[in-house]
Design a protein around this nucleic acid. Sequence first.
DNA 1: GACATTTAGTTTGATATTAAACTATGCAGT
DNA 2: ACTGCATAGTTTAATATCAAACTAAATGTC
Lengths: 148, 148
Amino acid sequence: MDETGKHVFQFFNEVGIIEQLATAMFNKRLPEGLHVSHFSVLNHLMRLGDGKTPLSLASAFQVTKGTMTNTLSTLSKRELIRLAPHESDGRSKIVFLTDQGRRFHKEAIDSVMPAMIALDEKIDWSKVIELLPELQRIRTVLDANRDI
Amino acid sequence: MDETGKHVFQFFNEVGIIEQLATAMFNKRLPEGLHVSHFSVLNHLMRLGDGKTPLSLASAFQVTKGTMTNTLSTLSKRELIRLAPHESDGRSKIVFLTDQGRRFHKEAIDSVMPAMIALDEKIDWSKVIELLPELQRIRTVLDANRDI
DNA sequence: GACATTTAGTTTGATATTAAACTATGCAGT
DNA sequence: ACTGCATAGTTTAATATCAAACTAAATGTC
């Protein structure tokens, strides 16, 4: 293996570890039984608006349909979302945020923010933001080449 | 939430998705029953030398001791590693690569490389490598602040 | 030296995730 | 209209992972 190959493995390794640490940090601050995956869905619906289908959410987070079924069913049991039938497609559903869901989203952010502020002194977030476009490019390419 | 906060969530989101896509890509190419986690351990031992303890591996990948016990036991069952008692500490063990393990590592890389080469035309790996130090910094900070 | 505390590894129970099979609906071509 | 293929979501079985309890060995304190 050449040098570049090693760096690439290292890159994926760093990404994996950052993901684990960040996930752990979030999970620790979410109430019993709720996971980053649940928060992420709520966050997505808040940012981009609800009324999405389960499949579009699965695709946004790159998880399988089965995973999204599971995530949404937990959110639904907790009444943080409401699943309505799709008005024009009998196979599909539409996901709506409930008031509880919106409230929970705000509370979750409030409980994570202190940790972020604590990190703020140590991480140059502006530099992190500079990384975003390149990460998005990599994500897009990986996504488009899932079958190779 | 302010703008920076949104970017930070976005950053963690991108990282999460890249991790999932990369993991999926690797897993698809590994033989039945073996996972990126197993390859990663072998890769680590190849890069930095074997003779490590399970705990040091757990810490290198930021997984729990229990997870590492599980990973190593699979590798051991397949005889890709050998677990020897620690010569001076009765509680501990030492992980050695077997010849099969080294062979498997090479084969795994050979089977992943074509996909990387395919991606090579689309991703500027040199730019990826430029991201490494900043990612490592973020990782280190997150790691050092796990308790906050 | 005895006892308390720390440390390395294992075990247990729970959960998120995946891949693949399955159900039901939509749609396209004939 | 019928038939066949595609699509949306669910279910199932297997696995990786975690947190927390547990075992056994080491270390430190008195």
